[in-house]
Every structure is written in C-alpha cells, then in structure tokens.
C-alpha cells in the first residue's frame, strides 16, 4: 500500500527510495461566497514522506488545519487533488472515504478522542471492529506495551487522565497499521508533561515501526519532535525545515509575526 510508483510520488535520496504516504497537489479550498469568501488553501502542493513525522505549522488562519482535513479525506478540496498513497480522494464517495479512513488512515484529535462508553481496549480496536476485521495480535500487543497501558485496558476513558486518554488515542490511530496517521493539535488540551509523553510516543512509534505521522500544531516545542516542519501562511506553503528545534521554529514563526503584525499566536478559533 505504501509504495507509490508514480514518478511524482517518489523522490530519490541517495540509495534510498522514499515514497510519499500522502500528498496534495495544487490544493485550493474556498469557504463561503461573495464578501465572506475566504481562500483557506491557495494552491498548496506538499507531500508527506512515508516513515517520517511531519509537523504543519503556521499562524492561526494560515490553513494548516484545512490542509490536514483535506489530506485526510475529512474535507474535500475546491480544486486540486489529495492523495493517500496512489488513491485520489476526489474519486471516492462518502462510503469510499469512510472505508479509506477506516483502513488506511489513523486520527488523533485534540478533544473528543475516545468513546466514553467503550473500554480502553475496545477504543483501541474500534476501527478494526467497525470493519469487522480480525486484529493483528502481535502488533496490538506491541502497541499496548509501547503506549504503556496494559493495566488500564478494561477501564473507561473517564477513569483515565487526559494524557493517558491521548495515549489510548495514539494507540488506536496506529492499531490498524494505517498508511498515515494525522494528528490535530494532539497536545492542545494537555499539560506540558503529558504533552511531552504523547509527542514522544508519536515520534517513537514513527522511528521504531517506520510509520508516517502528519501533525498540525501551533506549539514550537511540539513541532520540534517532528522530522520536518512545513510552514503555511495565508493558505500558501512558505517554508520547510528539516530536523527542527523549538528555537529555530519559534524564530521562523517570529518572522511571520513581524511581517503580518499579528499578535503572538492566539488560540485557534473554533468553527
């Protein structure tokens, strides 16, 4: 599934061929009409390489969440195309998108991440249960150990701390061995220590098991855990940074601020 064969889907770096797990090409997303018309994405083309942890950053309103939603098949582009592996999402109907999400994509959200009526174990296997698929016991076992929740498997989410809940969400996202996991501000609701744990879990899983993660965040410390950071502003891709550190990311963001005169990164407005 992961191997992309199209010429545009692979980049050759030295002897290693890296496929893109997900990408968007000339992505345009327009909200509203007339006076309230907003170009949330204004011709973005970006690929997320397989086996890498990529962070998407940008000031609020830069289109980073929209980019993630469109790339993950939660939202549709106005024009341009979004692909998971070789599958063009615009060719799928609602059912097709649902099955794609179920089988090839994992999600970690900021809030509402777990089903309160299901136990930890049931939450983790939820996508597979929905698909009626048998779970890969070895992978599941390994995952439980990585997440470190073996003693909590039969608890309800309400009995866990916020950090533990988010770790369960991470386990769920990886449980079905998806091509790519999208994380939307996964540490937004957590204290810094719990956030740090979740981020280490994400990056650790990527490195150890060669998974792909795309994370949207506005927190430079969180972005520093990624292999690469892509910067968005006003719906355009403005920069990429490999091997980021919190300081470098912060500096880069400050550059936007001086240019755009906006304040120091307000919290995301809710739609």
């Amino acid at each position: 599934m992961i191997a992309g064969t199209a010429a545009t889907g692979t980049t050759t770096t030295g002897t290693m061929t890296t496929a893109t797990a997900a990408r968007v090409v000339d992505a345009v997303k327009v909200y509203g009409r007339g006076d309230t018309r907003v170009r949330a994405l204004d011709g973005v083309s970006v690929g997320f390489p397989a086996g890498r942890f990529t962070a998407i950053m940008g000031p609020s309103g830069s289109g980073k969440s929209t980019l993630m939603h469109c790339a993950a098949g939660l939202d549709t582009l106005t024009s341009g195309s979004a692909l998971i592996g070789d599958t063009d999402l615009s060719t799928l109907d609602d059912r097709g998108l649902t099955l794609l999400r179920r089988e090839r994509v994992g999600f970690v959200f900021q809030a509402f991440n777990l089903i309160p009526t299901l136990t930890v174990a049931e939450n983790i296997t939820l996508p597979m249960d929905l698909a009626g698929a048998a779970r890969d016991d070895e992978w599941y076992d390994a995952l439980i150990d990585v997440v470190g929740l073996r003693d909590r498997l039969h608890h309800r989410p309400g009995e866990l701390s916020g950090g533990q809940q988010q770790r369960v969400a991470v386990a769920r996202a990886f449980a079905g061995s998806p091509d790519v996991v999208f994380a939307d501000e996964p540490t937004g609701n957590l204290d810094s220590r719990s956030g740090e744990e979740v981020l280490r879990l994400l990056s650790g899983t990527v490195r150890r098991t060669n998974r792909t993660v795309v994370m949207v965040t506005h927190d430079p410390v969180a972005a520093a855990h990624a292999d690469e950071v892509v910067f968005l502003a006003d719906g355009r891709l403005v920069d990429r940074m490999t091997d980021p550190t919190a300081e470098r990311v912060l500096d880069r963001l400050k550059a936007f601020d001086t240019r755009t005169t906006s304040g120091p990164l307000p919290p995301e407005p809710r739609s």
């Binding site: 939660l74 059912r95 649902t98 179920r102 089988e103 999600f107 509402f112 309160p116 939820l126 929905l130």
Partner: peptide, 16 residues
C-alpha cells in the same frame, strides 16, 4: 455530536 464525529472519522459508515 463530537463522539459521533469521531466514530465517523475513525471509519464508522453512515449505515453503521
């Protein structure tokens, strides 16, 4: 609402 959205996001079909 949020919970239903999550279920849909992780792959629950409309029929389910």
């Amino acid at each position: 609402t949020g919970e239903l959205g999550l279920l849909r996001a992780v792959g629950q079909t409309r029929a389910q």
